[in-house]
Design a protein around this nucleic acid. Sequence first.
DNA 1: ACCACTTACTAAACCGGTTTAGTGCGAGGA
DNA 2: TCCTCGCACTAAACCGGTTTAGTAAGTGGT
Lengths: 334, 334
Amino acid sequence: MKKITMQDVALKAGVSKSTVSQYINNRFEFMGASTKLRVEAAIKDLGYIPNQVAKSLKQKKTGTIGVIVANILHTFSTEIIRAIEDECERNGFHLFVCNADDQPEKERAYIDMLVAKQVDGLIIFPTNGNYDYYKQLKNAEFPIVFVDRMINEAIFPTLLLDNESASRIAVDQLVKKGKKKVGLVSTSITQHVTPRIERINGYKKAMAEYGLEIEEDWIIAQDKQEIGNRLQHLWDSANRPEAFFATNDLALIELLKFIKKNGLSIPADIGVIAIDDSPFLAIATPPISVIRQPTFEIGQDAAHTLLELIGSKDFKEEYEERRYLPILVERESV
Amino acid sequence: MKKITMQDVALKAGVSKSTVSQYINNRFEFMGASTKLRVEAAIKDLGYIPNQVAKSLKQKKTGTIGVIVANILHTFSTEIIRAIEDECERNGFHLFVCNADDQPEKERAYIDMLVAKQVDGLIIFPTNGNYDYYKQLKNAEFPIVFVDRMINEAIFPTLLLDNESASRIAVDQLVKKGKKKVGLVSTSITQHVTPRIERINGYKKAMAEYGLEIEEDWIIAQDKQEIGNRLQHLWDSANRPEAFFATNDLALIELLKFIKKNGLSIPADIGVIAIDDSPFLAIATPPISVIRQPTFEIGQDAAHTLLELIGSKDFKEEYEERRYLPILVERESV
DNA sequence: ACCACTTACTAAACCGGTTTAGTGCGAGGA
DNA sequence: TCCTCGCACTAAACCGGTTTAGTAAGTGGT
């Protein structure tokens, strides 16, 4: 693996590497017509590909951004990533994608790694636990955009779902179909993850507005291994819900497993609605109603916002928190 | 965003940057105990993070590899990526993941980009159309591993499923349950993609061995938008299959949509078996039997093989083609 | 007192580009 | 004829690290 360098091209074309560099950067006004042709030929002959690492070092930019998702297992994450990728591609940027696996230490290690690799900016689904570190990056004027979750201060632009509206829509749907005893299934809230907290709050508010009782037992917010047991326990008790609102796709899968195991029929025995869609939900039996997040829009906006931040010189003290409206997809499960 | 450099640390600690460099690389034998402490303090005080780009330039290695998947929409692709990621993480490597979208030109552009970014090696799901370019990279001794698909010469290590065995298992299952009229649903084969071709051949061989007739009409290998129409057309004709073998997840989704639309019941009206699993298939109604690929193993081996290739100096003329055994997951759809 | 040897450290070249200041030359103007 | 200017091009510094060769000071042996 002996690599061709600009010097090799220069030698072959009989010019200096400065001229080759100008050629590579399409600044043809710095050379004569015949020189241009000779350089062109030399590059093609040698199969020269410029070394981006050298270029990045000198120019102090890599054309690369880092994305750290809290948990890659959510379809929400993968869809956002895809949208970010598209927007970056359009602007000649490339991506390092990292999965923090909901662990703040992992997140921190990835931030360090990405900063060391000189990414031009970061899109982070923040875990709760690196506030000081974010603050430090803020001071260094490092461009960052937060997605899906908020931290206590809006030190960077933050894009996320209007979670309370999503919950309201879910409760509306269920109530409209006569389900007054509504339970909720969520993954664990021990880490105070924004969307889960807000969705639970939204659910409580909506229930209260309908004058419906909220049984604390009906709110299951556990690690996914535990959800099945809790559901079973609740189901076996005297006071069961008639419907469940699953606040994300992982919670929904656990809910569906439980329903399958108990041979229940949707929506007759139990109504179901969830946040986050998947191609399989449309062809499930019955098709599951969901509340979609505008993932494409969020991802694209996140990338766009970050690229703007990278391009601008003035850093603000505070940034806006942008909320996105959820989209109801009515199918046959409520 | 004013970055701290090694020079800043050196100044603050009152040493030369050579010494700081030695410290960063844990070569403490090159400095006295007190110096070590001063450097340590300076690094912490300044929050210094070494610039990997500069390091990469000098050392001619980036600790980064590129992965180009043919089509990211297959769960197979995402699972392989996850396994590659794990193995790389364990070895301190990072990943650029690119989606060629089944287009050779896109693939080529990504290869160029990744080579320019000085990745240490590539894992490619090759599209058919860049043979000459692969050959060129081979001559330059650039480390590459192919996954999922073969090209006509084994110029790089190639890891893929034993596709004919997978088809045999599928036919076995269907026949065992009395389904003798077996159709096949695949995505398009106009690009001669290895797994699709081999799975169709395997299906034909297996059917022949059972002495079962193969109707060319029963083999649907089309772009996914077309699959539904073809299925409907076939179903409306006089001579329908009693079961379908879907050769990948995208084909399966189209098949299930068709089944849903026609209100057919699985397996009574129509038996179904597919290659590639997904969490939803286990909770589908009825649960769908599948043939899993050992994605974790393939991905891990691919990464391991590549890292070995990167570490070694001697390049072989030819490399082995490694085949992986498919795994049957019996559920209730046949 | 002198030499050899270790210890602790530094200077400077190097990686492969980019970029700025500058040079040699021929043409045009006074 | 001399001066100025623009054209075509180059030399060299620079980006931020790594690495090698080298040096100054101190130690121990004879």
